[in-house]
Simulated assay, not measured.
Amino acid sequence: MGAFLALWRICALVPGRAHLPGLFNRLLMFVTVGCMLQRNTRGNFNQSGLLLMHVNSRYRGHTENRRAVVRGVAGVMLMSLFHSSAQAQMALASAINRTARFRALSQRIAKAYCQLYLNVQPALARDVLLSARHLVATGGEELARGLNTGPWPPDVAALLGGIQKHVDVLNSVLTMPPTRESVRAVALQVDKILITANTTTEAIEKLSKAGPARLINTVGRQRMLSQRLAKNYFLVAAKLEETSTRQQMNADVVEFQSTLSSLVKLPITTTNIRNELTLGEQQWIFFEAALRNKPDESGLKNIATASERLLEVMDRLTGLYEGALRDVLG
């Protein structure tokens, strides 16, 4: 019962909590009916067993064995429905995490590419670029296979296909050594991936119809914000920023800080989640301070390393929230 209460608390703490998620309704029904079946099996049937009265009245003349069989079949059916629903929700939660990761990876690729152009810790930049491109490739292959509960709906499949098309264009640009023109082209292309990946993540979240799925999306977005801030910092240093770049950076700082503060206040956490949140707060203090510095040689190096550390924490944190949802549903 504690697991269901935990799910209810999580649902109550995320945006859009005005509508009780359908999943919690089903879980509550399973608990209620399960308790009724259990009481009836012990011979303590009372007014709470109204749902079964109609069955008992129709088969009043039948043996106890017949009633036991009916109760057993009903129990198996309910557990089957719960298992199917829980499996689907866990698959969608994992898909949300993986799809949302494209948002961060797109910005991380542009950050590393611009970092190479500026010749800031080039060895680190090459490693980051290689790692990010590998994660994009493997993540695309995994999502293309669909859910373990079945294929994607046509609209989601089309969005995933759109991400891959944008990635193909990006890869063609990344084959060139970083120049002023190619850095600008990469920056424009990764934003197309970001927009499509965000739309896809939200579409999968709607399929879930469970409050905790939105929490995973929100936590996962922190990864992207950390990388977009670093990318834009490098673009400013390269004098390749757009007119809205600094305004976007200010908005991203506010959003990251606000979301982090909200996560810290959530009462539903594990020890590991609390530890990562504490570490995330510490890394954010350092990263935000580095963002305020001029993009000189020292400032660029600080952003290069701090953005990677913050990304690692936010990625682990997203995985921990996904795991917590799995524990509730599993």
Rank of each mutant, 00 (worst) to 15 (best):
I268Y: 01
T278A: 11
T259F: 02
E241T: 02
L263Q: 01
E241F: 06
M249Q: 04
A238R: 02
V253G: 03
E242M: 08
R246G: 09
N250H: 15
S258E: 14
V253P: 00
S262I: 06
N275P: 04
L260N: 02
E242G: 02
R274N: 12
T245K: 02
R246F: 03
L260P: 04
L266R: 12
S262C: 09
R274K: 11
T270N: 03
S258T: 15
T245F: 01
Q247C: 13
K265P: 09
T270S: 08
S262W: 10
Q257D: 10
P267Y: 01
Q248H: 12
T245E: 02
I268M: 08
A251C: 13
I273Q: 00
S244A: 15
A238C: 06
L266K: 10
T271Y: 05
L263A: 04
R274A: 10
E255T: 13
I273A: 04
L279K: 06
L260C: 05
L266M: 15
K239H: 12
T245G: 03
E255M: 15
S262E: 11
D252P: 01
Q257V: 11
I268L: 09
S261Q: 13
V264Q: 13
E255N: 14
D252K: 01
K239R: 14
L279E: 06
L279N: 05
A238Q: 02
D252L: 05
L279V: 08
L279C: 05
